[in-house]
Amino acid sequence: MVKVIVNGKEVEVSEGSVVLDAIKKAGYSVPTLCFFKGVYNEAACRMCLVELPNGKLVPSCAYPVSDGLKITTDSERLRKTRRMVLELILAVHKMKCYQCARKGGFCLLLDFAKEFGVEGIPVCAECPLHGEDCLLVKGEPCLGFLTIAGCGSPCTREGTPCFGCRGPVTREDVIETAVKRFIEHGVDLRDLHSRMKLFWSSFPQFKHVFDLVLKYEKKYMGEKK
């Protein structure tokens, strides 16, 4: 058994275990994304970083314990780093949530996005209506494609199309896919604009979202013709 000090709290864990075990035993938690106990501990996602006294950041899922090891699981720097890492992950995430198998909110990324306040995942990630059930496919002007997730998608769960009350996703490719799908499914674009203006028009910083929507509308309407 070795003694590990997690956030000042002493715990004993068996030799050969990793820092994450000690953290769990001490009653703290760190976010983990790629870690899967017994299957994968290659420390690729870097969400579970913890801080050593010398200022080094190490992944708790793969760092072996040693006697007297001191660990900090939460600090300004760690939070910033984790948040940034999450932002990086989301930056290359395809964001095709409308066809993701983890529909209805079973998305780890989304959980962390909520925890760290990172925006960019559309409501479709939480919406249980995918494929045929999608409100857009049924012709309703649902703004779920364009709206920041985190609400749990209560409206689409009840069959009401999303009104975008949480504000728009500002990523260009997400907007592009959304507009493309709106046009594909023949939604009246005037409805769409009216809906977008409902909650978003009061924020000047969302103007470029409107610009992008118009830009891609032009593009895809042209293609359709």
Partner: peptide
């Protein structure tokens, strides 16, 4: 109502589901 405030189960014409 679907949620505590701002109900979303209903729209003109009846209940959504």
């Amino acid at each position: 109502g679907g949620r505590i405030v701002n109900p979303n189960t209903y729209s003109v014409g009846g209940f959504r589901k």
